[in-house]
């Protein structure tokens, strides 16, 4: 495939990929390659592993782009979710203690809105607003991990916090954010339950 100018805009790319459009795939690589690469680097032990993860993620993307629904998530969210899932699975296999089956199957990717759920897609600006309600210490760690792409050991080095504290704060922060997203979407809704 030869390089071609970007002809698909964000929000249109995965639809084109699902239809097997070469230009859409090229645009997908250009637009989301950096995101996938940065997620892979965060989980992998080295760049070689990260490269494997990136290739696996894109293969997954070519196969599952048709499952993307703009009403459920932004393309960036969908791609990020896929990249994280591939990274975790890959690293688990590398450590030679694979679970008997993936904890979250590929079929559970967001696909359709459940009846009566209303809008589920959460705009990025709303997430950023929600972050302001979290404790400063949590926001700082989120920034280091999700925005700057630091691994846990790198966060320890940067902040001087014990590893256990970093892990605990990030985990609790993620659970708290999830709870707030649920509240935003309705107290009983589940973003992936339609799958």
């Amino acid at each position: 495939m030869t390089a071609s100018p970007i002809q698909f805009e964000e929000g249109q790319i995965l639809a084109g990929v699902a239809l097997g459009r070469e230009a859409a795939m090229e645009t997908c690589i250009s637009v989301y390659g950096g995101l996938i690469w940065s997620i892979a680097l965060r989980y992998a032990d080295d760049r070689s592993q990260a490269e494997d993860v990136v290739q696996e993620t894109f293969m997954d993307l070519w196969k599952s782009a048709g499952r993307y629904d703009a009403a459920v998530a932004s393309e960036k969210t969908f791609v990020g979710l896929l990249a994280r899932r591939r990274s975790i699975d890959y690293m688990r296999k590398q450590r030679r203690q694979p679970p008997s089956e993936p904890l979250m199957a590929a079929e559970s990717l967001p696909e359709e809105l459940p009846e009566g759920s209303g809008e589920r897609r959460v705009e990025h600006a709303a997430v950023l607003e929600m972050l302001k309600e979290l404790p400063e210490a949590t926001r700082e760690l989120f920034t280091l991990h999700f925005e700057q792409g630091l691994t846990h050991p790198e966060i320890v080095e940067r902040t001087g916090l014990p590893l256990g504290t970093v892990k605990t704060r990030l985990r609790r922060g993620l659970i708290e954010l999830r709870n707030r997203l649920r509240h935003l979407d309705g107290p009983h809704s589940n973003p992936l339950s339609a799958s």
Binding site: K76, F78, L81, M104, A125, L131, L177, L181
Partner: peptide
């Protein structure tokens, strides 16, 4: 139910725009 994974993806996508 996948909601934590979902939340992480939302967070990643939102903060990734800042870098």
């Amino acid at each position: 139910d996948g909601s934590l994974e979902w939340a992480a993806a939302q967070l990643e996508a939102s903060l990734a725009g800042n870098r």
